[in-house]
């Protein structure tokens, strides 16, 4: 795999660090650019361009964290915040716009209503992304230790 432009989707979950590390490792050989995006999901009760301070703060923190993780691995990334109604389509659109050839997305073990679930975001990206998609699932051990 020799990606040239990697899009990393971060969302503030425990999976973020692992996803950024993976992107850094994969970028080295092909000197790929890395874009880290955080999607702020804007409720319909607000206009799409509404400035939500709490969400902005969270987005900035998450992206700063991602930059730090990348820095520790000796690589750089370009960070971006997007506002959208739905996260999945926003990630796909961003990948198209940036002409990414690889999307890396993380999954923390999800047990919604007691059953395993991928969630709408990942399903949408897997279904609609024009490029290759890597899904990184967190080790169960991490869950156990932190829980």
């Amino acid at each position: 795999m020799k990606p040239k432009r990697i899009l990393v989707a971060v969302n503030g979950s425990k999976a973020d660090a692992g996803v950024v590390e993976l992107a850094c490792d994969l970028s080295k050989r092909s000197k790929a650019d890395i874009y880290a995006v955080y999607v702020v999901e804007v409720k319909r009760s607000l206009p799409l361009d509404a400035v939500i301070d709490s969400e902005m703060k969270k987005a900035e923190d998450v992206l700063t964290q991602a930059e730090e993780v990348a820095g520790e691995r000796g690589c750089e990334l370009e960070a971006d915040i997007i506002q959208a109604r739905d996260v999945g389509p926003a990630i796909v659109e961003e990948a198209v716009e940036r002409e990414a050839d690889l999307i890396i997305i993380g999954l923390t073990q999800k047990r919604r209503f007691g059953t395993f679930s991928l969630g709408n975001v990942i399903l949408h990206v897997l279904k609609e992304a024009p490029c290759r998609v890597l899904l990184s699932r967190e080790s169960l051990l991490v869950e156990v230790i932190t829980a």
Binding site: K43, R44, S45, L46, R85, P89
Partner: peptide, 27 residues
């Protein structure tokens, strides 16, 4: 709708106040 026009459709009963609140009917 999602396939053809993007995020323009929300699943829900448009007669229900809860759905309309979520849809941002107030604005």
């Amino acid at each position: 709708f999602g396939d053809d026009m993007g995020s323009v459709c929300m699943r829900g009963d448009g007669c229900e106040a809860a759905t309309l609140a979520q849809a941002g009917a107030a604005r």
